[in-house]
Design a binder for these strands. Structure first.
Lengths: 227, 227
DNA sequence: CGGCGTTTTGACAGGCTTCAAGGGCCGTGG
DNA sequence: CCACGGCCCTTGAAGCCTGTCAAAACGCCG
């Protein structure tokens, strides 16, 4: 993510008790449960989502390498959302109990944690705008573009292709649409010639046009500044 | 919010350079601008919202006493949303440039900042579920109930009444609905006998029933734990 | 080859939006 | 004191976007 000072590095090493390699499909956190630690995603994709008693499901967002998961649970006792691995993953485990130590002994890392939280909040804001005010087509364009850009940042894009490890059902749950309508919308989007998505492989054909369709200002993807 | 240690108190005093008393309607932050400081709400209400070029507007959430505003701007350079005062307010000003000092010199307060960010994120998650998966009636019930509970926490409720300082247009923009449909929905909700909202005065008549209508688990409003 | 999860397509119903206009409240000014 | 304008709330009607129901096609894997 960024260069660490030797001191920070030592500290991270000390915490980095373990790594975890959950298989695709593994539930990493379950709504309502207490979480003993939080994770940094080293590789792989995950979904963060909520479910209602009657089965309705909303995807809150996706987690990619470099993202934190479980911070909410660590700060506020129980988790109020679930997280599931979409691919095989590699996670860096961070014991929740030692979060306070981190704040006391390594303020620069504490700052990073808050920075990640703020970045996450910005993503959620953007999604909120989508669900509340964008049409189905705009939403789809917006989501796919956003995921593409994020994937690009962490080097998951080759040429103009990414492997999207989720189904149309996942996309539907992220867009707040029905599966059927999501399918039709994706086809409509494909017919604009701005992108292609067959199987699991997504291809960006015309970034400017897709951006315009999304009503989307590509959000100059902030890098963590050096304080 | 909680009891401070003398040390923390001294630190806060030192930062608390100024208070600000914006009038209702004042824009506190503007989308796209750099922000020089962030605020803690001491009293009054504000809206956090985003706007699209064509005028569509989505309110992201409301800020009440005890909430932070502007953290995103402080951590990630430019603001990507606007904030407007709904009432006359009293704000505690915190210079952005000194945020880092706080992390270095007062970890317990730094921890609080992150805690607030996590709480905020949880609110956004809940809203996301509303916009994506709840019907208009459920959304309205959910929002009103959530605002009532938050107002209750900070002592703004008398008996079972609160003063909601926003218009139906604001609610519509929060729910992601049109003004017309929001109006109809609010009437439909009133007809269930679970609440009343005339003028600016909101009255909760049947909390359990309204909760059920919202498909809402009242989210045990976490207090900040003593580490 | 059979089975299951995913994607696709069609038809129809309905929730929500849009357009339009009227009503109520309140502060301002003549 | 009353007329006026502005903002907010309310109500009606028409139509579109999106949801639901249903079924078939596809692709993958055992």
């Amino acid at each position: 993510m960024r260069d660490f000072s030797p001191q920070e590095l030592a500290f991270v090493q000390q915490f980095k008790r373990a790594e975890l390699s959950p298989k695709a499909g593994t539930i990493l956190f379950e709504e309502g449960a207490e979480s003993a630690h939080l994770y940094t995603v080293l590789s792989g994709w995950a979904v963060r989502f909520k479910e209602m008693p009657d089965g309705r499901r909303q995807v809150l967002n996706f987690a990619l390498p470099g993202d934190f998961i479980g911070l909410q649970g660590a700060m506020l006792s129980t988790m109020q959302h679930s997280v599931q691995a979409l691919t095989d993953m590699l996670l860096c485990v961070f014991p929740r109990a030692r979060l306070w130590d981190l704040y006391e002994r390594c303020p620069s890392l504490a700052f990073d944690v808050t920075w990640l939280a703020a970045r996450q909040e910005r993503l959620l804001d953007e999604n909120l705008l989508s669900l509340g005010r964008r049409s189905a087509l705009e939403r789809a364009a917006c989501l796919l573009l956003s995921l593409f850009v994020r994937a690009e940042r962490v080097g998951l894009v080759e040429g103009n292709r990414v492997l999207f490890p989720f189904t149309q059902q996942d996309v539907a749950d992220a867009l707040g649409l029905s599966l059927v309508h999501t399918n039709r919308t994706l086809h409509r989007l494909a017919r604009t010639g701005t992108m292609r998505w067959r199987g699991r492989s997504f291809e960006l054909l015309d970034r400017t046009a897709l951006t315009r369709l999304a009503g989307y200002e590509p959000p100059a993807w902030q890098q963590r500044p050096f304080i």
